[in-house]
């Protein structure tokens, strides 16, 4: 255990937790928008996978990580629009259509990878940025201020999301549509337009999350996300549909995983326990769901398609 309390290991644990949290955070923030407006998009993982492949492939071809991130965002927008079409216009059962999007993304990203790339080829990664001054602080500098650039971007998007949801007209419309679409509609708010916007934001951020994951790892492989999109959806509930709560959830999830890895590396947890340890995040999430459900209320219209009354 004493091996654990060294500067290098503690810094690596915290920094690792933050890195693991980033794709979850981005995807979950996007999903928050959709759910606040009453749409559950279960296809996040599929969008992430296609975003990851597109981002990876673009970087492989151009060598420019920013083009890669933009390409991931672009495919996220397209798939976000497609998801809106499926759940808003076509009013498909949201719990199920998302599974379809997931399976499609899982298969399609792998198919494209096999066709266009074949064997994994490493790509350029995001540059690491040491924040001047702050990164020199002992311990804390290494933990928080010496990360790749997407890490900062992801965490900066939290206050942006808070501002949009809580302070803008658009945010007010999102909340109104999620709580009482009929009333919003009667006040002249276009329910479907708001939902199209939020689900597309969700797709965009999911695509960005996938691209961020692939470019941060510098590689792509079949099922790269390993179902992180589903974790992200759970984190939205965990965070009680609030960006800060979502961020807390993503960080907690990242830290638990990072801690378990570190403990296994140092032999503090025996290898045979790894399956049990891997259960911990899901069980914690279920418990958190119970607590959240007691204290907070989901948007009333969540998963309910809206048809204007006759």
């Amino acid at each position: 255990m004493s091996d654990f309390f060294t500067e290098a290991v503690l810094i690596a644990t915290v920094a690792g937790g933050i890195r693991l949290a980033v794709p979850l955070l981005l995807a979950a923030l996007g999903e928050t928008f959709g759910q606040r407006s009453g749409v559950l998009n279960l296809g996040v993982d599929g969008i992430m996978l296609l975003g990851a492949f597109t981002g990876y492939y673009t970087v492989l071809k151009t060598g420019n990580v920013w083009y890669g991130l933009l390409a991931g965002i672009a495919i996220g927008i397209v798939l976000g629009l497609a998801s809106s079409l499926i759940s808003v216009t076509l009013q498909a059962e949201q719990g199920i259509s998302g599974i379809g999007v997931y399976l499609f993304g899982l298969g399609m990203s792998d198919l494209l990878f096999q066709r266009l790339v074949g064997t994994p080829v490493p790509i350029t990664k995001f540059p690491k940025i040491d924040i001047p001054g702050l990164s020199d602080i002992p311990w804390l500098g290494g933990m928080f201020f010496s990360h790749s650039v997407v890490v900062y971007l992801a965490f900066l998007s939290v206050p942006v999301a808070m501002f949009i949801i809580n302070k803008t007209n658009f945010g007010m419309n999102i909340r109104a549509v999620g709580e009482n679409p009929e009333a919003a509609d009667s006040l002249g708010v276009s329910v479907s337009r708001v939902r199209y916007a939020t689900v597309t934001i969700g797709g965009t951020l999911a695509g960005a999350a996938g691209a961020a994951l692939a470019i941060d790892l510098g590689i792509f492989q079949q099922n790269l996300t390993n179902a992180q999109g589903f974790i992200a959806i759970a984190l939205v509930y965990f965070g009680a549909w609030r960006p800060l709560g979502v961020m807390a959830g993503a960080l907690l999830y990242g830290f638990v995983n990072s801690l378990v890895l570190q403990f296994k590396t140092l032999g503090i947890i025996p290898q045979s326990w790894s399956d049990i340890a891997a259960m911990a995040p899901a069980i914690i999430t279920i418990l958190a769901l119970v607590i959240v459900a007691r204290r907070f209320r989901a948007p009333s219209a969540l998963t309910k398609p809206f048809t204007r009354g006759t």
Binding site: I99, G100, L103, F104, G105, G107, M108, Q222
Partner: peptide
């Protein structure tokens, strides 16, 4: 992977037209 992608498409199309 093609079969998986097709499976997904079938799900999407069946669910989307359910209404």
């Amino acid at each position: 992977a093609l079969i998986l992608a097709l499976n997904g498409l079938v799900v999407i199309f069946v669910v989307s037209t359910d209404r």
